[in-house]
């Protein structure tokens, strides 16, 4: 069938660098720069915050006053004090209540989407949850201020509806979608053979979920909750709008509080650059950075442990 003979090569060219070679090198370099710049920027931010904050920590910081005192009076003309106990209590109470709200919602939603919903319903719900996760925090703050505030005043007959309850609910609803998504991933990662084995022994749907799926997906679920905590801890705008902004350790869910984040946001603009007040706010930033870093790292480690199993 051969109609034409091919000429056998007598030499081959191995050191030719064409356009493809240069394109390949250029793209490799660009991707490298892109990847490295993210890391460099984060380190840069950390260095910047630390540099400003460290001046305060080394100079005017009194550790006992800082963590033990309720008196956050950085603008006092006579004797400024920097006690953040009230801010920590505010952040902790709001985040805690947010978790009380969001854990049942998000676990329930994840179980429904992952174990019960099928086909179109399941896909629709997943898209909806992702849409909810994309609502800007200022919108949530707005809902807290103009919708939940009068509602709380009406229902509980209190003078002000802004406080731990309001911002806890808002923050909980805000964190729920992302927690749902991660929890659902955790449930999806549980091999179906486990469900089949349990069903073949006559376990009902609920028994399969409570005795097999949830224990097997435990690590992923813990990670989901931790990331929710991190989200609540670092959230600023919604908290600023819904807490009522007064520094105290709350004794009732209707008490107004303020959070670490909200304090930075509210005061940084007015603090003279380089002043103790300015630097104290950066110290709060370091504290936030460290705590969220620890929360995220823990979540990450938990997820990795889940993945290894």
């Amino acid at each position: 069938m051969l109609t034409e003979r091919v000429q056998l090569s007598t030499s081959i060219d191995l050191d030719h660098r064409g356009r493809d070679w240069y394109t390949d090198k250029a793209v490799t370099f660009l991707v490298f720069v892109g990847g490295i710049s993210a890391i460099v920027l984060i380190i840069g931010i950390f260095v910047f915050i630390t540099k400003e904050g460290l001046g305060f920590i080394a100079g005017s910081l009194d550790v006992r006053e800082f963590f033990g005192s309720l008196a956050w009076r950085p603008t006092s003309p006579t004797k400024p004090t920097y006690g953040i106990l009230g801010l920590i209590a505010g952040t902790a109470s709001v985040t805690g209540l947010a978790m009380v709200v969001s854990v049942p919602f998000s676990l329930g939603a994840a179980i429904f989407i992952g174990e019960f919903a099928t086909g179109r319903l399941r896909e629709t719900l997943k898209v909806l949850v992702e849409l909810l996760a994309a609502i800007p925090s200022v919108v949530w703050g707005f809902i807290g201020l103009s919708l939940l505030n009068p509602l709380i005043i009406d229902i509980f007959d209190v003078p002000v509806g802004l406080g731990v309850l309001n911002s806890g609910i808002i923050l909980g609803l805000m964190a729920a979608p992302i927690m749902t998504t991660i929890a659902e991933d955790a449930l999806k990662a549980v091999p179906d053979t486990y469900r089949e084995a349990a069903e073949a022994m006559g376990a009902t749907k609920w028994q399969v979920i409570f005795r097999v799926v949830l224990p097997a997906g435990r690590n992923g679920l813990v990670a989901a909750v931790l990331l929710g905590v991190g989200r609540g801890f670092g959230e600023t705008m919604a908290v600023l709008m819904a807490t009522g902004n007064s520094i105290k350790i709350p004794t009732s869910p209707f008490d107004s509080v303020t959070a670490l984040t909200a304090t930075i946001a509210a005061e940084l603009g007015d603090a003279p650059v380089g002043s103790d007040h300015y630097r104290a706010l950066f110290t709060l930033g370091i504290l936030l950075f460290v705590v969220t870093f620890i929360i995220n790292l823990t979540a990450d480690l938990v997820v990795r442990r889940a993945g290894r199993k």
Binding site: T193, Y194, E196, A197, A198, A200, M201, G202, P215, A216
Partner: peptide
Amino acid sequence: RRHVGMVFQRPNPLP
């Protein structure tokens, strides 16, 4: 399924 048990191709003990 309580009365009709099953053993599968791949061993599938629960975790």
